[in-house]
Amino acid sequence: MELSRRDFLKFSGVATAGGLAAAKMLEAQPVSAESLDLELSKPIGEVPTICCYCGVGCGAIAAADADKVINIEGDPDHPINQGSLCSKGQALAQMRTVNGKDNPNRLTKPLYRAPYSTEWEVIEDWDTALDMIADRIKKTRDETWLDKIDVGGTSYTVNRTDGIAEFGGGELDNEECYLLAKMARALGLVYLEHCARI
């Protein structure tokens, strides 16, 4: 086999081109693993809720398992926020679930601190806790109960206690606020306030 300079050049040209052709094949991009028919990485949510922060009242939709929140984002149908939420609203999921687990700071059992004690004790059941609280309420109420007061020599029926105060409610639902008001007034409370005043 004889080889002319010309043949050689031709051959090297072909060889180089072969290298490049192989390159072209090898350089081809891998098929996109994330093409347009991609599934959502998690459900967006269907349970309508209203954000618990400011008074705008934005709608949100939540997706949850039995014991954890999977996603909470703005409710696109809601006429006020139309799907949008601020930083706090977007973080709603962490009220319950942080990094896939229960928010470790959430309270999960009734706690009790005895007089002069340096620590919390867990109260194992609600019934005990509420029984203890009801006892305190009754005791204080009975001790501080005012049937009547005397103003300028005249006696007036007042049926109240100054010994118990109730605070709160701005974060609760209307039904909860209503029952709190009903309970407080039935107990004869006059020191009844919440964050609307502060």
Binding site: R96, P115, N174
Partner: peptide, 26 residues
């Protein structure tokens, strides 16, 4: 704490989406 005689009860509440009810916006 040794000089504070207050009994304190701390009750765990459900958050806004762990219950249902109405709320009134601004």
């Amino acid at each position: 704490p040794g000089s504070i005689g207050t009994e304190v009860f701390l009750l765990p509440a459900a958050c806004s989406y762990e219950k249902q009810g109405s709320i009134s916006n601004s």
